[in-house]
């Protein structure tokens, strides 16, 4: 409910928001770090949507990726290791009017927070989740993460890891109540922006795995892909992402993929020799927890008091009537 006048007043008072309005503190990531590109793309999405900074909350866990809320000029919550998603769900539940972003890493999400990841996907609450996947624990100076390739030598695996990596894309595509799954690469800013933007526009749990370069501790991991665009497979669709003409000349491996087709999405994630970049799956009709559990009444202090009293009255001992 808003009156006509308040709508006019609101419009008349609107101000044009620039990229700087979404800037927080000066980023302290290493130079050359892919996280910078992710931050820039996220700020561009906010500017594109003209989101009021006070209506944005960025939630993170622990890791290089999780420093991101400090660099956004919005509300933020730098939480516990692996617990970004439950905090974000709580925020969305209580304040559905806020735009919630989650910034998490391969250690934060796929290791200690893996349980929350499975259930947050199933809950499908409206938020945009950015998984900064650099295949290494960078903040603590190089330990193997669940997504590190087989044989990665690190401080915790000096002879190389003995287990193959976990594939976040395939894992997510196998989860229940799925709603939005995409993969992006930090070194293709145009697609990164398009994908985060689509994820933001999607009503539901938008899971975006971002291949992220770590020039300090895992420099060789994505370098071949950066140098050789043919190692990527761009998934194009009129409902997905579309390459500009200049990028089309560089990325020649392209495939039409309808994001509504889950079976095809799983095939691409499981069997493709090249790394897919684009929107793999999107279903706007997946039920959302915050809608299913939406309140029908506003909770006022007196309503809470009334409810509590009713509950407590159940334990009242009534004096026995004398016969």
């Amino acid at each position: 409910m808003s009156t006509r006048a308040s709508e006019i007043l609101r419009r008349s008072g609107e101000i044009e928001r620039r990229l700087e309005d979404y800037a927080g503190r000066m980023p302290r990531w290493c130079t050359g770090c892919g996280d910078n590109a992710i931050l820039a793309a996220m700020q561009r999405v906010c500017r594109e949507e003209q989101l009021p900074p006070e209506k944005i909350v960025v939630v993170s866990g622990i890791g290089c990726s999780s420093r991101l809320p400090h660099y956004m000029g919005s509300y933020g919550f730098h939480g516990l290791h692996g617990r970004a998603l439950p905090v974000a769900e709580g925020i969305k539940m209580r304040r559905p009017d806020l735009h919630v972003f989650v910034s998490t890493g391969d250690g934060d999400c796929c290791s200690i927070g893996a349980g929350h990841w499975v259930h947050a996907t199933r809950y499908n609450m409206d938020m945009t989740v950015l998984l900064h996947d650099n295949n290494i624990y960078g903040l603590t100076k190089k330990q193997a993460s669940p997504t590190s390739p087989l044989g990665t030598r690190s401080n915790t695996s000096p002879r190389g890891t003995v287990l193959g990596p976990l594939d976040p894309l395939q894992a997510t595509l196998g989860m229940s109540n799925l709603s939005f799954v995409a993969q992006a690469a930090d070194w293709i800013p145009e697609l990164l922006f398009q994908i985060i933007h689509a994820g933001f526009r999607h009503k539901g749990f938008s899971f975006i795995r971002i291949l992220q370069r770590c020039p300090e501790f895992q420099a060789d991991r994505w370098e071949p892909c950066v140098q050789d665009p043919d190692r990527l497979l761009i998934l194009e669709h009129e409902d997905g992402v579309q390459l500009s003409s200049s990028l089309s000349r560089i990325y020649r491996n392209r495939e039409e993929h309808d994001p509504a087709d889950l079976v095809d999405a799983r095939r691409i994630a499981a069997t493709s020799e090249r790394l897919p970049v684009g929107i793999l799956y999107r279903n706007p009709d997946t039920p959302r927890y915050e809608e299913l559990r939406a309140r029908t009444k506003s909770v006022t202090p007196s309503l809470v008091r009334k409810g509590l009293n009713e509950e407590l009255d159940k334990f009242t001992i009534w004096p026995r009537e004398r016969s």
Partner: peptide, 25 residues
């Protein structure tokens, strides 16, 4: 410019020669 990943490498190295545009590229 459209392919710049905002990694701060060049702008840190030579801030007078390199700069970011509206999209931080």
């Amino acid at each position: 410019t459209p392919r710049c990943t905002t990694c701060d490498e060049c702008t840190t190295r030579s801030p007078r020669m390199f700069a970011y545009d509206d999209n931080r590229q």
